[in-house]
Design a protein around this nucleic acid. Structure first.
Length: 468
RNA sequence: CGGGGCAUAGCGCAGUCUGGUAGCGCAUCUGCUUUGGGAGCAGAGGGUCGCAGGUUCAAAUCCUGCUGCCCCGACCA
C-alpha cells in the first residue's frame, strides 16, 4: 500500500535546529559567514521551477538520482514546515514519537506486504544476513508498537505520529524533492475501537490538515481519493493548485474561499468536527483518477474549476487491515478482544517545500510565505565597509531578532545589484535596504518581496511595519 | 523497464562530423578603477575531456564495453 508521496525532515527537535534565536545572545547571521551557495545560471537538469530555484538558491544539492542533501537555507524551510505540521498535529491530539528508518523484513511478512511491495522497497541485508529494509512507510511498525503495550479500550483513542525519512525506490525520480526517492514524511496512525471512533480520528486529522496548509499560505483542497480494497468514503488527498502541478484536478471553486478551521477548534467535539468535514466535502472535488464528468457537470458552470494540482497530503482509513493479521487487539467494555480500527495520515514536508515554491515565485526567484520563510527579513548593507550603514544594519538586526524574527544580514563586499538579486532569489518576505544616502536622511528602504512595493521609512518605522 | 539524450574547469557551454599539445562565458584569486538592480580593465590559478579496453605515429574526437545523470512514457495504495 502506498501513501503520501512527500518527503523528508529534520529530526525531532521542537525548534528549528539552526534557528538564529541564538541571536538573542549576540550572534548575528551574516551572509559573509553563512553557507549559501547560490547559482547565477540555471542548472541544466532542473526542468520545473521549484527544482531550479531550490538549486539556484542553494537549498539542496543532489547526491544521486532522487536523493538530496539539504543545505542550510533549505533546511531552514524544511524546519519551518515541520514545525507547523508538528504544532497542528499536537493541537489535534496526536502524539509524536520517532521510529527508525531501517525495519526488519519479518515485520512486513506479518502483514503480507514484504512480498507484495515490489521493487519500490529498498531491501538490505545486514552482516548476519538478516533481511532488513529501508522503510517506505510505517504501518507495520506502529502496529507492532501498539500491540506491545495497549490492551484496553480505555487507552483509546490514540494517534501516534512521527516525522522521519522514508525511501521508495521510484522507477524514475524527478522534479527535485517533489518526487524524490528519499523523502521526509510526517505519518500519523490512529487507533480506535470501532469505525465510528476511527471516523472521528479521521475528521480530526482532516481538520488539522486544513489548518496546516492554510498556515503555510496554501490553498489546499481535499479531494476524494481511491480507497482501495477498503471502500467507503474515508480517503482524501489534499491538493494545492499550481500551474505546474503533476495531475489534473477538478473542483468547485467555492472551496478556495472557505474559512480555515479556527485555532481553538474543539477536537473532542465529534459532531462539530463532522459538521466541518461535511462542509469541506460537500462540493465537487476530484483528481483525474476519481473524476466524474457527470458530477462535475452538476457544478454551476461559473464555479467549475479545472486546474493542475500537487498532492501534499493524504489521509486514509483502512480499518483492520493491519491490526487483524498482526493481532493488534484490545478488550472492549464487554471484555471481548477485537482488532483496532486504524487510519494513517501523511504529509510530505520535503515535497511541500517544492510545492510551496511552485505556488510562490516569480522570474526573480522565490517568494516565501511568511510562515515558512527561511529568513523573515533580509537586511542589505548596500555599502559594506561603511561604519554608518553597518551600525544601522546591526541595530535593525538586533531589534528584529529580539521580536523573534529570523533575520539575515547581507554584509558581503558585493555590489548593490548582486545583493538585490540574491535577496530576491532566496525570497525573504521583507527586505530592508540600508544605504549611505538614505541613512544620511535617517531613512532606509523597506521592500516587500511579494509585491515589490518599497517605501522610505525610518529604521524604527521599518521595524514597526514588519512586526506590526 | 521501453524510447531518446547527455557526460570537456565549481556552473553553463564550444571543440567531436573531418584525429594533430584544452577553449569561451560566469565563478574563484591579485591589483587598479567603480559603487542603489548580477561593474570595467589588467593579470593569475584551476581539467587523468565519466570509466575501461581497442585502432593509430598521434584520440576529447574513431571503435567496443561499462557507469552515471537527464528527458518522454509506463509507474506514483
Amino acid at each position: 500500500m502506498r501513501c503520501w508521496r512527500l518527503s523528508c525532515a529534520p529530526r525531532a527537535c521542537d525548534l528549528p535546529c539552526d534557528s538564529p534565536r541564538s541571536s538573542l545572545s549576540g550572534a548575528v547571521m551574516r551572509l559573509s559567514r553563512y553557507f549559501l551557495p547560490i547559482l547565477k545560471e540555471n542548472p541544466k537538469e532542473a526542468e520545473i521551477v521549484s527544482h531550479r530555484l531550490m538549486l539556484r538558491a542553494g537549498m539542496i544539492r543532489q547526491e544521486t538520482a532522487g536523493i538530496y542533501a539539504w543545505l542550510p537555507l533549505g533546511l531552514r524551510v524544511l524546519n519551518k514546515v515541520t514545525g507547523i505540521i508538528r504544532e497542528e498535529q499536537n493541537r489535534a491530539g496526536a502524539v509524536e514519537l520517532l521510529m527508525p528508518t531501517i525495519q526488519p523484513a519479518d515485520l512486513w511478512r506479518e502483514s503480507g506486504r514484504y512480498d507484495a511491495y515490489g521493487k519500490e522497497m529498498l531491501r538490505i541485508t545486514d552482516r548476519h544476513e538478516r533481511e532488513m529494509l529501508f522503510g517506505p512507510t510505517n504501518e507495520e511498525m506502529i502496529t507492532e508498537i501498539f500491540r506491545g503495550y495497549v490492551r484496553s479500550y480505555k487507552d483509546l483513542p490514540l494517534n501516534l505520529y512521527h516525522i522521519q525519512w522514508k525511501f521508495r525506490d521510484e522507477i524514475r525520480p524527478r522534479f527535485g524533492t517533489m518526487r524524490s526517492r528519499e523523502f521526509l514524511m510526517k505519518d500519523a496512525y490512529s487507533f480506535d475501537l470501532d469505525k465510528e471512533g476511527a471516523r472521528h480520528a479521521y475528521n480530526a486529522m482532516f481538520t488539522a490538515y486544513l489548518r496546516t496548509f492554510a498556515r503555510m499560505g496554501l490553498k489546499a483542497v481535499p479531494m476524494k481519493a481511491d480507497t482501495g480494497p477498503i471502500g467507503g468514503d474515508l480517503s482524501h488527498e489534499f491538493i494545492i493548485l499550481a500551474d505546474t502541478g503533476e495531475s489534473a484536478v477538478f473542483c468547485h471553486s467555492d472551496y478556495l474561499s472557505f474559512d480555515t478551521p479556527a485555532a481553538d477548534t474543539d477536537f473532542g467535539d465529534r459532531a462539530g468536527l463532522q459538521q466541518l468535514v461535511d462542509r469541506w466535502t460537500s462540493l465537487y472535488a476530484a483528481t483525474e483518477e476519481m473524476h466524474d464528468e457527470a458530477g462535475f457537470a452538476a457544478v454551476p458552470e461559473d464555479r467549475r474549476l479545472a486546474a493542475r494540482g500537487i498532492e501534499v497530503g493524504h489521509i486514509f482509513y483502512f480499518g483492520t487491515k493491519y491490526s487483524e493479521p498482526m493481532n493488534a487487539v484490545v478488550a472492549g467494555p464487554d471484555g471481548q478482544l477485537r482488532p483496532v480500527h486504524m487510519g494513517s495520515y501523511g504529509i510530505g514536508p520535503s515535497r511541500l517545500v517544492a510545492a510551496l515554491i511552485e505556488a510562490n515565485h516569480d522570474e526573480a526567484g522565490i517568494i516565501w510565505p511568511d510562515a515558512v520563510a527561511p529568513f523573515n527579513v533580509a537586511i542589505l548593507d548596500l555599502k559594506a565597509g561603511d561604519s554608518a550603514t553597518a551600525a544601522a544594519c546591526e541595530d535593525l538586526y538586533r531589534q528584529l531578532s529580539a521580536r523573534g524574527l529570523d533575520v539575515l544580514l547581507d554584509d558581503r563586499d558585493e555590489r548593490a545589484g548582486g545583493k538585490f538579486a540574491t535577496a530576491d532569489l532566496i525570497g525573504a518576505p521583507w527586505q530592508i535596504l540600508v544605504g549611505p544616502k538614505g541613512l544620511a536622511n535617517g531613512q532606509v528602504e523597506l521592500k516587500r518581496r511579494a509585491t515589490g512595493e518599497r517605501e522610505l521609512v525610518s529604521p524604527a518605522d521599518a521595524v514597526a511595519r514588519i512586526c506590526g
